[in-house]
């Protein structure tokens, strides 16, 4: 599989991950839920993987549903 730079959003709660997926889809923002990469945090959980140029749109969407504690990373995945 071709590796590429991706924007990855990690959440403090799984409920936030699904609320985020919902609002991203409502706003037509592409991406998908993935297992939280170990390079972000050892353990488990979900993260949102999207194209690397969508940070503003994604963070605006998160703010609209009061998710302010998401963490944004840029990773080669």
């Amino acid at each position: 599989m071709k590796e590429e730079l991706s924007l990855v959003i990690a959440f403090d709660a799984t409920s936030d991950a699904f609320a985020a997926e919902d609002v991203f889809r409502q706003n037509g923002l592409s991406g998908r839920l993935i297992p939280l990469p170990e390079s972000i945090s050892a353990g488990c959980g979900l993260a949102w993987r999207a194209e690397s140029n969508l940070e503003k749109e994604l963070t605006d969407a998160l703010k609209s549903i009061d998710i302010t504690s998401a963490h944004i990373y840029y990773l080669i995945l």
């Binding site: 403090d12 709660a13 799984t14 409920s15 936030d16 959980g45 504690s69």
Partner: peptide, 15 residues
């Protein structure tokens, strides 16, 4: 399903 190495529950609700 989150924070597996933590000794406590996640701090956020409802999780």
């Amino acid at each position: 399903g989150i924070d597996s190495f933590s000794h406590d529950q996640p701090i956020n609700y409802p999780d």
